[in-house]
């Protein structure tokens, strides 16, 4: 009985070239999908800043790809979700500085009762993609470090 491999022709080097070509095509496909997905899910369009005030955290955020749109923001303190709101408060200084087309991009969060000591707040812009099937959070500005005194009042910690 003939051996199984003797029943087949030995392939030419073209098969190797096809395999290499297929690998390159798949690598390009995966790379392209990764880049497109990254830009879609985490678009580099959000711009903003946040700071500590006497009552909490306030700041502004603009979606440069849709400057008229009001951005939804979420506040996390020490990694714990605190609140969500739409950044639609007046910030004429932001428009005057040229960061936004109009002034309605501000947000204010009142901090919950926190223990005395140092804390860190992070404000994220909420972004929908994939027709609402995906949601991503993008950090707006830098993490905001602050301390809370014995009276419960927040103070910025200078960088």
């Amino acid at each position: 009985m003939a051996r199984f491999d003797n029943l087949m022709k030995t392939p030419s080097t073209t098969l190797v070239h096809v395999l290499i070509g297929k690998s390159i095509a798949e690598t390009l496909l995966v790379g392209a999908l990764a880049v497109v997905t990254f830009i879609t899910v985490l678009p580099p369009y959000f711009h903003g800043w946040g700071e500590v005030t006497d009552s909490g955290i306030s700041g502004w955020v603009v979606n440069n790809a849709a400057p008229w749109e009001r951005v939804e923001v979420e506040l996390f303190v020490d990694g714990e979700f605190v609140a969500t709101r739409v950044a639609n408060e007046s910030r004429p200084d932001v428009a005057a500085a040229g960061w936004a087309k109009n002034e309605w991009h501000g947000y204010k969060f009142i901090l919950p009762p926190l223990s005395a000591g140092s804390h860190e707040a992070r404000v994220y812009a909420l972004h929908d993609s994939g027709a609402g099937t995906r949601k991503s959070l993008q950090l707006v500005g830098d993490p905001i470090r602050f301390s809370v005194d014995a009276g419960g009042k927040p103070h910025a910690i200078s960088r």
Partner: peptide, 23 residues
């Protein structure tokens, strides 16, 4: 189109399996 040596052809067979599974 030069033909491949037998041992290379066998390695090639494994590569073909990996390639299809990867897809």
């Amino acid at each position: 189109q030069p033909s491949l040596p037998e041992h290379t052809a066998r390695t090639l067979a494994l590569w073909e399996i990996v390639s299809v599974a990867t897809s």
